[in-house]
Design a binder for these strands. Structure first.
Lengths: 167, 167
DNA sequence: GTCTATAGAATGATAGAC
DNA sequence: GTCTATCATTCTATAGAC
């Protein structure tokens, strides 16, 4: 993904068109502005996260929902290392979505699923740290070379420890 | 900081010059290329991190070093929320420093100080998660509004939990 | 839908005066 | 050291042919 390679602000429509294999004009036929492209990419990533939440929410009780969402989010982050980090960390997207109600709603749902229905308002920091830890760890210089399956199991273990859950 | 606001790739020399209050030509008198500016900013941030490590290393035993580095890194991240995230997450800097020996050496030192002298190679992921969690949490949408002092104490508490340390 | 061609602004970088 | 002026290139975006 180009946004993850050069940052959103450092990616031009020329690059995007060349990567796809068409001209700029063809890209502009699908999207009217660069902002629209950014939005489409961010929304697609949010779709994936929401699917993970939906699947977890289909579980029976709160504990199973929580376990499912932890595994699901870790899987998503490992599978799409760079993209998840871009969504959460790129300053252009951050500015675009700082007041976006969908992003806040999805993060709120994640918070509820992870921390349980009786979570107070103080749980936000814990959830923030959780998502930051996962999305940041998978692209960290110290971990860049790590194999997917080892990364997955270790991340789940550390996340559970962060949440004071039994491993 | 402009790099934190628009990303490194999305920041132009025009913007930098205007922010300082001079012309582009004046900036080019100090730095020969844009890459040189990026490097200077990243090095300054690394300097700060290394100073924190130096102070922690001056403590007596391993446990005190570890406690000092946790508090120092959290303080640094809260004090410079955006900048720390930029150094660790911006793809342009990441590419520039992916094979930089100084960055790897500093992160290695951090790993040693946090995990102790008897830490195995598996500790890298734990340290990666730690730095990612701290640097990512402080700029997270769910936490952006949080006051500095509360953020500081809560982060230290959660970091210690992540490391299985007594709070 | 995709192309060529182009407009007008912004980009990184340089030359030369003060 | 800082300025104005400029260079070649690239940028976002549009017009119009096929």
């Amino acid at each position: 993904m180009l946004f993850a390679e050069h940052g959103v602000g450092g990616t031009s429509l020329q690059m995007i068109a060349e990567r796809i294999g068409v001209t700029k004009a063809a890209v502009y036929h699908q999207y009217n502005t660069k902002a629209e492209i950014i939005r489409a990419v961010a929304e697609a990533e949010l779709d994936r996260l929401e699917m993970v939440l939906d699947e977890a929410d289909a579980e029976g009780d709160a504990a199973r929902k929580r376990d499912a969402v932890i595994i699901g989010v870790v899987d998503l982050a490992v599978e799409r290392r760079r993209q998840v980090g871009t969504l959460l960390n790129d300053p252009v997207i951050a500015r675009m979505y700082s007041k976006d109600e969908r992003l806040l709603r999805v993060l709120g749902r994640l918070d509820q699923l992870v921390m349980g229905p009786d979570a107070g308002p103080g749980s936000a920091l814990e959830t923030a740290m959780l998502t930051a830890a996962i999305s940041g760890a998978v692209i960290h210089p110290l971990v860049a070379h790590q194999k997917d399956d080892i990364l997955r199991s270790e991340l789940v273990r550390l996340v559970r420890r962060l949440l004071s859950l039994p491993v």
